[in-house]
Design a protein around this nucleic acid. Sequence first.
DNA 1: GATGAATGAGTATTCATTCAT
DNA 2: TATGAATGAATACTCATTCAT
Lengths: 196, 196, 196, 196
Amino acid sequence: MEAREKIFQAADRLFSINGFDATTTREIAEASNTNKALIHYHFKSKRGLFQAILDRYFDNLSETLQRVLFKNGATGDRLAAVIEAYVDFLAKNRSYALIVQREIAGGTGRERIMEHMIHNFQMIITALRDAYPESDYRNIDAEQLLISFYGMIVTYFTYSGVIERMLKSDPLSQANLAKRKEHLLMMAQAVLKAAG
Amino acid sequence: MEAREKIFQAADRLFSINGFDATTTREIAEASNTNKALIHYHFKSKRGLFQAILDRYFDNLSETLQRVLFKNGATGDRLAAVIEAYVDFLAKNRSYALIVQREIAGGTGRERIMEHMIHNFQMIITALRDAYPESDYRNIDAEQLLISFYGMIVTYFTYSGVIERMLKSDPLSQANLAKRKEHLLMMAQAVLKAAG
Amino acid sequence: MEAREKIFQAADRLFSINGFDATTTREIAEASNTNKALIHYHFKSKRGLFQAILDRYFDNLSETLQRVLFKNGATGDRLAAVIEAYVDFLAKNRSYALIVQREIAGGTGRERIMEHMIHNFQMIITALRDAYPESDYRNIDAEQLLISFYGMIVTYFTYSGVIERMLKSDPLSQANLAKRKEHLLMMAQAVLKAAG
Amino acid sequence: MEAREKIFQAADRLFSINGFDATTTREIAEASNTNKALIHYHFKSKRGLFQAILDRYFDNLSETLQRVLFKNGATGDRLAAVIEAYVDFLAKNRSYALIVQREIAGGTGRERIMEHMIHNFQMIITALRDAYPESDYRNIDAEQLLISFYGMIVTYFTYSGVIERMLKSDPLSQANLAKRKEHLLMMAQAVLKAAG
DNA sequence: GATGAATGAGTATTCATTCAT
DNA sequence: TATGAATGAATACTCATTCAT
């Protein structure tokens, strides 16, 4: 593997475990078997490296969402598809949720993350609204619903440490992920039925 | 106000804004109109100060939950009461959610927070289960439900920056908080109805 | 015991073990079951406390030497008496040698110690010279001899850690001290005989 | 000169003058025309720098002793050779005696120094014993003799401040060093004669 | 691309000392 | 006498970044 990519991956892992501030360039250099100066050669600065990591995640996530959102289908189907896609994305990109969760709470990278976030959220809302005639689910407040489902999904990953102790098994195992998805879909059906 | 308490409050504010690592003892000393040495005199270390802040929050939260959980009432009523109490607690203690969210993602203080968290979660689950005869809501998976509602509630506060831009108004205003509560109660009713 | 004396003794012990710089007023306060402010009340400053300890030692040592030096007797007897008295003094005041050895090598207290030292040395030389007619031991260089015997005596105490490992028994036991004295007296006789 | 060596030499000088604790990294950085961070880059820590200095001294001393000890010759010649070599070493390495004297009295670095010391002492004893038939000097206690001569030699250097005032001339001048050596050799002859 | 050396600015922490009571 | 609280100055050490090769 190229040095640039080795640095990238070591940093991704360390940032997700210890956060941006608590991760040092020396640690990244050691973990990637390179040296501090090379990090600056490839990424200009520690923050530049961090941004590169975030950008890659957001590119992948946007792409994933777009692929899923603009298929035709009923509101319920679209909602289900987004839920599944989001869960799969977070399961595959373990570091993403941890990094974002920390950074959104405050920090230098907050603004950039918020922009991505808002962009994605609005894309989702547009897609969902687009799927149902105003008349059908007039009681549904799309923003509130989005926050709720986003919260339900993402919390499962950011609190996986706590959840592991509650469930007494790995929350990210195939079985437990399937169970979580099932629960989320049940929630979606329940709310649509109630609002219909 | 005593110096100890001035330090405590300044630190609480700064930690919640910038996180533990990005907050310096110099900043805390300046913000509290004291000096760095006094922080160590009263709290032994920067981390000791952080723990003192967390401990106070967890004491308050535990007390709040206990007051609300063990009133009599139907399952739905208890669930509604917990939701309201949690939202109120987070609204009153703005820093808490931000601090915990960051720390739970990883870092030196994670273990201690996780213990508190699990303790509270199990207390809630026990109280809810205790409220409904096994037969009534046999389809409800209490752990999944807890994660979901916890996620719905807490995300509203930790993502308040994003939400503010979506709603184009302050998510923590009385009006918006009331709206959020209403939504959460609607979700609770929907899921209970679906599972009943 | 009075607080003043408790501080004095705790400080004597700690200074001799770790040296002046490496001993903190907090340690002294804890070891003496008092508090830092009281040290300053009784001794003005950390250095004042140190000086008080040194002064007490030098007072005792001067007195001891004076008692022994100005008895009548032959040169050899006087030399033997000084050797014995010095060894006994160092054996009884374990901290003294350690403190002086460190301080004489350099440090803020050096000047004061050197003054005491020179005063004692000159007193000894005067007494020894006074004891023998210029003609008897005209080959003896009193200063050189003094340095030699002082070195032989004091090194046994300051290097007691090393010596313990060489002898495989406690250098400060009665038996070993007696052996050391015997050796020193043998050295004294040898040199006087050679110079006579 | 390289920065590493500049730091090394400045530190050697400062440690010998003021001791380990009273010497600050800032002083070392200034005296060596470098900066504090570079000290840690090259020596990991202040103590690491100190150890490096000690290690170099002990390497040189061991080598010096070995060169001198295992030449053939009578007991008296070997003793004389060791005395001369030791005096020359201390005269050339002014800092060594001061640093060791202080550290041997106690502190964090004591153990390491004691090990070197014991190693050298045992090497000397072995060499001396090896040089005389058991029968010749059966009254000589080699350990006591070693302590005595070590004390006579080293004290001349560690107390050079006091001695200067007594002699009223520089104890480290060529003339005074020669005089000291002469005295030490006289002592050696006297004791061998007495014990023979 | 890669790397050892170098650096200014910063960190948490500790210190002896003082003050008010 | 005794003590808890307070403080300015200092400490060892670490950091991200730059530079020369």
